[in-house]
């Protein structure tokens, strides 16, 4: 269980300008939660606080009832895997090395057969088996993104936070990625929180949508409640056209009056 209680955060030293203001919400178990909102709304910051990478100014994040600040780094790494929005490509390693790093919380670098199997599975899942010996800097942006996601899969945690995982993925892989995430939830009982920019992906694949604006959660609910003209205008300051398609609401964002 992850609960966010009265969390505020600020990047200023004295907290004059709040990046997050009084955030309260509980992560729905075994569901994909989509975090949506305009650029700068505070989505990444919230995930960072939830993963205990950033300290909160006030309030707390509880993981199974314990404040994350009191959870040991290694114990946390077995519970929560977090893929940041941008990856530092500072070292030259192969896809396989990277995915093996994902097993680090479990084996501290000494891989057992189980760890190797998990690595192979993750590579298989992300369709990277053929590229496993390639260096990351020799891959396309999307292939690299898949390699990082494979690492997160290998980490095999009950909670997975993904900050814009569809970055750099083409349509085929975006859809495939979302289906993989769905399978993680339905087959492996994971709980996923992901930042999505394409509202239609959120509507189609998420079980729950949390909308942020200016550091606050302004709406949350299941997709049917959230994909309305009124809600979306409040969140994005933008008029979407909502159409029914196959029983689901679809947003159109091109001005073609």
């Amino acid at each position: 269980m992850i609960e966010v209680k009265n969390v505020s955060q600020s990047y200023n030293r004295h907290g004059q300008r709040k990046t997050l203001e009084d955030i309260n919400f509980s992560v729905r178990e075994h569901t994909i939660t989509a975090l949506v909102g305009a650029n700068g709304a505070g989505k990444s910051t919230l995930l960072g606080v939830m993963a205990n990478l950033l300290p909160a100014l006030s309030g707390s994040v509880l993981l199974d009832g314990t404040d994350v600040r009191r959870v040991k780094t290694n114990a946390m790494a077995k519970k929560v895997a977090f893929l940041k929005q941008t990856q530092l490509l500072s070292i030259r390693v192969t896809v396989n090395d990277l995915v093996e790093f994902g097993r680090f919380p479990h084996c501290a670098g000494r891989l057992t057969q189980l760890d190797r199997d998990k690595v192979s599975q993750a590579l298989e899942y992300m369709n990277l088996t053929e590229l496993r010996e390639r260096y990351l800097d020799e891959l396309s942006g999307g292939q690299r993104q898949r390699a990082f996601i494979a690492m997160i899969l290998a980490q095999d945690t009950p909670y997975i936070f993904l900050d814009e995982p569809l970055n750099n993925l083409d349509v085929k892989y975006s859809v495939e990625m979302m289906k993989i995430v769905q399978r993680l939830v339905s087959e492996l009982n994971k709980t996923v929180v992901m930042v999505l920019h394409d509202i239609n992906f959120a509507a189609a694949y998420a079980g729950y949508i949390v909308a942020m604006k200016d550091g606050r959660i302004i709406r949350e609910g299941v997709p049917e409640e959230m994909i309305t003209r009124e809600t979306l205008r409040a969140v994005f300051d933008f008029d979407f056209r909502i159409e029914k398609y196959g029983g689901k609401n679809v947003c159109l964002y091109f001005d073609n009056e």
Binding site: N52, L53, N74, M76, A77, K84, I91, F101, F104
Partner: peptide
């Protein structure tokens, strides 16, 4: 510590995510 030294090469947040202090 070889693996840990490699992992911290990928940045503080990355390392923390993998349980490396």
């Amino acid at each position: 510590y070889a693996s840990k030294f490699s992992i911290i090469g990928l940045g503080e947040d990355f390392a923390k995510n993998l349980g490396v202090r």
